[in-house]
Amino acid sequence: MKYVIKTVKVLLLCILISSTAIILLFGHRDIPLNDLKPKYANKASSFIAVHGMDVHFRDEGDPSDPIPLVLIHGTGSSLHTFDVWAERLKKTNRVIRMDLPAYGLTGSFPDHNYSMTNYTVFLKDFLIALGIKKCILIGNSLGGQIAWNFTLEQPNTVAKLILIDAAGYPKKSKSEPVAFKVAKTPVLNKLLTYVTPRFLVRASVENVYFNTLKVTDSLVDRYFELTLRAGNRQAFVDRFKMSVDGSSLTKIKDIQQPTLILWGEKDLLIPVEYAYKFQEDLPNDTLVILNNTGHTPMEESPFESLIPVINFINKQHSENHKD
């Protein structure tokens, strides 16, 4: 009996020592917002009060454009994922993008409610705050899911829809970022809010790229440092705890707006077969598959992916048809 007690004590001591070592090696404090602003906000950045948050956004290009482009990023990302696109598109269009609640410089929802309903209400109130009555809505991954749900709820606000590797259908990923897996795992997800190794962030970004050589140190720094924005790590975990309401899936066929479905052929998180699900369900779509590209085409292959986007934006509604 004494041997068993001694063994348990040794094991507990080893666990304590290991946990302490992990925290010392990989533990990171939250980075205050004011420390991040000089690097990740610029002269085009603004902040606006929506739902009790100071939402970080950029409104660039032609202010007289009656139907601006609204760009929405995905899970764990920020408005910076559209940097290359925005630089080109703002020459001919008004381009608006924001850091979604839970990510970037915006931070978490005050009520910690990361349901799709709360995100679509947020988007509605954000657009109202900016005086936007009609727009072309563009979303990647989570942003795509928000975009098509918003289109169902506010059809008069959306002139056209662009879905980039969009979420929404129950999916079977071929591979998933390790950070996603940790966020879904009890106990480990608690640890994630304190211990966030940079190599975990790099591995997660590489997971959604096809060409991992394009994952630069500066790109990893951006994802890593914005993850450490106060409140973002807990929000990341909280969002994965939300139950999934699939009731809106049955209504996708009701979307009448001309829709571009843009997909990375090598997307392992939301594989390309889901692009064909959207194509089957949407009555007025154009489908473009990008070769040798992963889950975030606008970031991994920005110039190649922008060509069909510009062509689609410039088409007259009457020219759109189902491929």
Rank of each mutant, 00 (worst) to 15 (best):
L69V: 05
L71Y: 05
T92H: 09
D83S: 15
R97M: 15
T106P: 13
I72T: 08
H56L: 11
P66I: 08
D35Y: 05
G74E: 14
D99K: 08
G61L: 03
G107Y: 04
D54K: 15
D62V: 02
K43T: 07
D65C: 08
T92W: 02
D59Q: 03
W85N: 10
G74T: 04
L100R: 09
P38Q: 11
R97W: 06
V70S: 05
L105Q: 01
V55A: 09
I72G: 03
A44W: 10
L105K: 10
S77W: 13
L79I: 07
L69R: 08
I96S: 01
E60Y: 04
V55P: 05
N34G: 04
G52I: 11
E87H: 13
P38S: 02
N34L: 09
V84K: 10
V70P: 06
V50R: 12
L71N: 02
S46D: 03
P66K: 08
I48G: 12
P32M: 01
I72C: 01
S77H: 08
S77G: 04
E60I: 12
D65R: 05
Y103D: 10
D35Q: 15
Y40P: 09
H56K: 00
L69G: 01
L71W: 08
P101W: 13
W85S: 05
G61F: 03
H51S: 12
Y103N: 13
T92G: 05
R58S: 10
A41D: 15
D99E: 10
S46P: 02
E60C: 03
G61R: 00
T81N: 12
A44Y: 15
V55H: 13
D54S: 12
A102L: 11
R88G: 04
T92D: 14
H73I: 05
K43H: 13
L71G: 08
R58V: 06
A41T: 12
G107V: 09
P68T: 07
D99C: 01
A49C: 01
K43A: 09
K39A: 12
K43P: 01
G61M: 12
K43F: 06
A41F: 04
M53Y: 13
S108W: 00
A49N: 15
H51V: 00
R88V: 14
P66S: 11
P68R: 07
K37F: 07
A44Q: 07
L100I: 11
L69C: 02
K90T: 06
D83I: 03
G61Y: 00
S64C: 01
I72H: 04
D59C: 00
W85A: 03
F82T: 00
S108H: 09
H73Y: 11
N42P: 13
R94W: 01
L36T: 09
